[in-house]
Design a protein around this nucleic acid. Structure first.
Lengths: 211, 211
DNA sequence: TTGATTTTTCTAGTTACTCCATTTATAATG
DNA sequence: CATTATAAATGGAGTAACTAGAAAAATCAA
């Protein structure tokens, strides 16, 4: 069953920690929505989640991270690092997008709330780009493995970043439409505009010729 | 004399303020270099620039902004908003890059210092993207004026962002090479890889046909 | 000089975040 | 089950970025 994002098995302790983490995030997002990001203090979040303020920092290094945290991240990560090398890159890319659609259906509201915050609060918007840069490095390393180039290769990084930028702008547009349109469709439109698919296949075939 | 970036005329008071602002930035950058960004306090910067700590915040809203501040920004801005509509977009784009080369020659070291900081300090790196998003909106509005589309048009924003992303990755690469290579050349390479030029001209001619 | 305005400075907060020591809960072992 | 190891939660004391607002000082206009 490809292109399905499912939780990873964890020990009892780990699961409990994850639950606390999600509780903190849930309460924090609620408070942010009610009274705004800046007006909400760590103390209030801790009180709502029934932990001490110190404990908050055991789970999230900063107040920003409580918004950025995404429980699907590790799954998406493992999914991306175990891609089939048999299909062309563009096909893999579209496959990933279908996986994304699944997540969207399951967690539409939380994703929208987090995305909106990341859009509206400047420091979060800024931090979000950090995450994108991490993703860029991941994608670049995947491209590197497939083409035999170095992961720090300039062109690979540019391509990876073009991919992510197009995706990001699509998400922005989706939020501007208040989460009502089809996000995955918008992403595909942006990727086509940037002609990312052909560019990826080009890269792959060019490398095959050389080696 | 096109493609030359020159200071804008200012009143006496304004010039004095600008001088103070630059002094603060100069001292701050020196201290950051000597003892690191996090280890340098506003108090120290204020002392070095011979102002009170309160005054610091009259000039820069946050510690981060002291790194982000670029005295060429208003010039570049006015340059971009007064582009000739006679030439095709791709030509204008390359023209701008030549202008950039001039600035690089004049202020290579300060630019490198600021860029390095923005690369190495995570919160600055994040903030830098905010600036890029501002630039995106500016470019989108220029494209909008030329094509008769709306400035919030999805495709325009994607294109503008692709342009900036390519440029940004080129600058990153330039810093990774410690400012030794030809930055403008790298930028052109990235833009060609993304095929931004053709894409821009495509957009323009497509619009002409329609109206 | 006088008065208006801008700029700087001071004071007194608030809050995110750090460090470290202590206590409490959980799991592993004999 | 009792003991021990380990990990997680907490408390307290401190730092530094930033805010608001009032007072003082410098600058400019008439």
């Amino acid at each position: 069953m490809p292109n399905t994002i499912t939780p990873v098995a964890l020990g009892l302790r780990e699961r409990k920690k994850l639950k606390t983490k999600e509780a903190i995030q849930r309460e924090a997002l609620r408070l942010f929505k009610e009274q705004g990001y800046a007006a909400t203090t760590i103390e209030q979040i801790a009180a709502a989640a029934e932990i001490s303020p110190s404990t908050f920092f055991n789970y999230f290094p900063t107040k920003e991270d409580v918004v950025l945290f995404d429980r699907y991240d590790p799954m998406i990560f493992s999914m991306m690092t175990s891609l089939p090398a048999s299909e062309p890159l563009s096909a893999v890319m579209y496959g990933l997008l279908d996986g994304l659609a699944g997540v969207m259906e399951r967690d539409h509201d939380v994703i929208l709330a987090r995305s909106k915050l990341s859009l509206e609060v400047p420091e979060l918007r800024a931090r979000f780009w950090e995450e994108i840069e991490k993703a860029r490095d991941l994608i670049a390393s995947i491209l590197a493995a497939r083409t035999g180039r170095d992961a720090s290769d300039f062109e690979l990084r540019v391509l990876a970043m073009l991919f992510l930028t197009a995706t990001f702008e699509a998400i922005l547009e989706w939020i501007r439409r208040d989460g009502r349109g089809d996000m995955v469709k918008l992403v595909k439109q942006a990727l086509d505009l940037a002609q990312i698919g052909p560019r990826l296949d080009e890269l792959e075939s060019a490398t095959r010729k050389t080696r």
